[in-house]
Amino acid sequence: MKKRKLEKGELGFITVLGVFSLICLIASMRIFVTAPTLNGEGTVPLITSCVLVVMTLVMLLETRGCPRGFEKGAALGQKARELLQFLFPGMVGPIILYCLVYAVLLSILGFAVSTLIFLFVSMITLNREHKVRSFLISAITLACIMILFQFIFKVQLP
């Protein structure tokens, strides 16, 4: 890998991957011992999770000597703030949040209402002008999707 400046929180990300890999390894091990043969249902998962662990280590080694993402000695609070800034700049955070709310609303309000709300709210969040136009576009899009999926293809919508 070319030496480049690490992204903010990249080491943390690799650590999370490492933990994930270890969990996979342990879980695979537990399956493997129930059928310890070459064709057992734990064999290939075991190999795969070993690959995961090894690759995490390689990735860590590769970051040696790369300039760190955070400045040295920065306070934990500031690091956290910078990390959030990097992960969810601008409108990304709100949109992800809307998606989560939308997912919940889907099961409560049904597809039509929640989709309309989602489209409208996210469009005006992204561009505060033209509220009426955004609403119109949301409504037309929704109508098109409903017609196409529900009435023509009889694909059920949530």
Partner: peptide, 23 residues
Amino acid sequence: HFKRVFALLVCICLMAAALAGCG
């Protein structure tokens, strides 16, 4: 912008209509 969005939607509608016709 509006024109383009309109184009997109017309496009979807056209498809819808074509499919409906076929159905």
